[in-house]
Design a binder for these strands. Structure first.
Lengths: 151, 151
DNA sequence: TCGAGTATTCAGAGATCTCTGAAGACTCGA
DNA sequence: TCGAGTCTTCAGAGATCTCTGAATACTCGA
């Protein structure tokens, strides 16, 4: 048992494009593509042929953003991890933080240039757009959560 | 005339977090914060204190994704550029390509694992989610475009 | 066609990021 | 308390990315 399948590596690559660390993305892909319910750090290390340090870092980061979770492992000293239910919505919400940052950057710019300057008007358009997204995107995600898993 | 203001640099940093090259982001910020209608490559070079090569590359890339545009410059041999109307919606659409990539990666995974395997079910959830976004996000942007600039 | 002004390209220096692997910390049963 | 098994940390090697600046190409009026 070793090496991720091609589709798994491909998925990892896609996650990478979204800004995720490469090894972190591969760890997530491993947890997605395994036929087991959970994987341990040791299993992942072996599967991906990467250092234990990388696995540790990746698991820590994925856990902290809520994409995976530790599973109580009766009768095992090793920690078991699994992909978390509803994680995709979580990932999306994470990325929406960028929308907030953009809106705030616009706000800050307007404060500096004044609402009625040339730049102020450009930044006003920006602020309005990100403000709109900031209000509408959470609603979109909630709607998804509401109707279960079928769109 | 030199150096971007702090709010402008801050905005550039935000763009960077969204995956934009640093110098490209600074060029875009310069075009956003200027009180002039347009800027030339030379002006930007001077303003940001960066090489002409960087400016050229940045302008090329920003133009190609539709965030800025060349403006016909009567009586000037230099090229004039300005931030493009509706550019934010364009930027958002660009980023939505990632949603498509994610959906396709899921699809590919399901094709490999089979719909009814453990992994297949996880990937099914993923596919459904990104499929949902892929259908809904363009609608959201269109709605924004429809009601002008006030949300 | 010429030449001044402007824009583009790209090799390579430098900055940055990522991963490894070994040292050390932690955990838990005995 | 001890020690085997497991996990975490982090300095530094190596890989990657970014920017510069000089050479080159382009453009346009005369």
């Amino acid at each position: 048992m070793s090496a991720l399948s091609d589709p798994a590596e491909h998925l990892a690559l896609a996650l990478t494009q979204g800004g995720m660390q490469r090894m972190t993305a591969r760890v997530l892909a491993a947890l997605l593509f395994t036929e087991q319910d959970t994987l341990t750090a040791g299993e992942i290390t072996e599967l991906l042929v990467i250092s234990s340090g990388s696995v540790s870092t990746a698991l820590k980061s994925l856990t902290s953003v809520g994409l995976i979770e530790k599973v109580p492992a009766p009768g095992s000293r090793r920690e078991h991890f699994r992909f978390r239910e509803g994680a995709w919505a979580t990932l999306m919400s994470e990325q929406n933080q960028l929308v907030r940052v953009m809106r705030e950057a616009a706000e800050q710019g307007i404060a500096a240039t004044g609402e009625d300057s040339v730049a102020g008007r450009r930044l006003g358009e920006m602020r309005d757009f990100y403000d709109y997204l900031w209000r509408e995107l959470p609603a979109l995600i909630d709607q998804w959560k509401a109707h279960g898993s079928k769109g």
